[in-house]
Nucleic acid binder design. Structure first.
Lengths: 223, 223
DNA sequence: TAGATTGTTAATCGATTAACAATC
DNA sequence: TAGATTGTTAATCGATTAACAATC
């Protein structure tokens, strides 16, 4: 009751984009219905989990038939809030920032990078892809005039906090942080960190575990 | 008993790099001991959680004093398997691949990109940063001769599966996949996906939730 | 109809959190 | 000593999984 509005579990949210990708493929192939079983199979998940996830989007399926491909696509897009494109600014146009600015897939996520800011004055007035690069001094007025809610931060770690504080001060409500730094921000600001270290940590720890198990196993082969 | 070797919870593994970053900062400032309370404070976590996480690294602290900064750093690096640098190859030298090849932080993670491969023949013989770019035809011999265990995949989504199958065939045991595609691979191959869509999904869904709550709240202000 | 699939309710599993004794 | 912090054991919480009735 108490404001349990759309409380979709984060693990579920993380799986939704994978479903969406598959579904778009199916749609393009002309498929009309899809079963949770098929999706699960394709992604190496259990059918029950897929059904539970799908139920979070509010869509209903038909026993024996499955779910409407188009219906599911719409429901997921809606659930993720990817239906109405959101303008975002990019701060930091280094190697990573450049890759982000040039990335064409964001359209699928309802994200549109409309402007970039970089402290290197040689970049001012130029553009990466279709994204113009401005002087950071103009950040405040840009954010306020264009009612920008989201900032993508791709500056060096030691500038990330200062940049975040600034954009939040100008009215930004959500930050996608690519800098290897844990930001301290007011509770009502949404922060998502996309961190190479974290991602690689999981890979690395699993590789290490496999190696140890292997060693151990080949060691105990002796008995 | 049954091979519960190093079974560290994945959520814990994901937090370790954050601790590590802080600790390295403390070390550079000359701090010798650190408490779980301080780390927790700094990262917005609960002290108990930090203690639990730390206990997974096997290191012990001193009541009232805390943990040795250097000891903790070593323990985390060891736990993640970041102590002995691992050679990796990069497949796909587009915008993202370039950013990855040029990224200097990988040294901290024990990852070293030693070679890159791209299907664009104009790139063969050139380099990004210090990383030479080769013809993909040479991938097999390179992997085998250099005993490469890890491949970083940054090719377009529709080539990712084929590339993954190939490198696994050549002996790669772990894949860090940046392509927006869920790979199907043998169980004994470790795969970690770093996916902009997934990451943004969480941000996006939270933003949407906030907006709805706000709307709802301001709506019910009427009573 | 028989078989496959959905959706719901309950059981299980694992991570987080709480409580508290041990200790410097 | 008193207070802060660790480490352990138990309780809670939430996600995954299982079981099964409903249904096309």
């Amino acid at each position: 009751m108490s404001s349990d509005y759309n409380e979709i579990p984060i693990p579920t949210i993380k799986r939704l984009p994978s479903y969406l990708r598959l579904l778009k493929g199916y749609r393009d192939e002309g498929m009309e219905m899809v079963s949770a079983t098929l999706l699960a199979d394709e992604l190496g998940l259990k059918p029950i989990q897929v059904r539970k996830d799908i139920s979070c989007t509010g869509i209903e399926g038909k026993p024996k038939v499955g779910f409407s491909v188009i219906g599911l696509i719409d429901a997921i897009v809606e659930t993720l809030g990817w239906n109405n494109a959101t303008d975002a600014i990019l701060v930091g146009v280094g190697h990573l920032g450049t890759a982000l600015a040039r990335y064409e897939g964001f359209g699928n996520y309802g994200l549109k990078i409309v402007a970039a800011f970089d402290s290197d004055e040689r970049k001012w007035g130029t553009a990466v892809g279709n994204v113009p690069i401005y002087n950071p001094d103009e950040m405040g007025s840009y954010i306020q005039e264009n009612h920008v809610n989201i900032a993508v931060i791709a500056v060096p770690a030691d500038h990330a906090q200062a940049v975040a504080d600034r954009v939040v001060g100008y009215g930004v409500r959500a930050i996608w942080n690519f800098a290897p730094k844990d930001l301290k921000l007011p509770e009502d600001v949404v922060v998502q960190r996309t961190d190479l270290a974290t991602s690689f940590a999981v890979l690395s720890a699993q590789v290490k575990l496999r190696l140890e198990q292997k060693k151990h196993r080949s060691g105990s082969t002796t008995w």
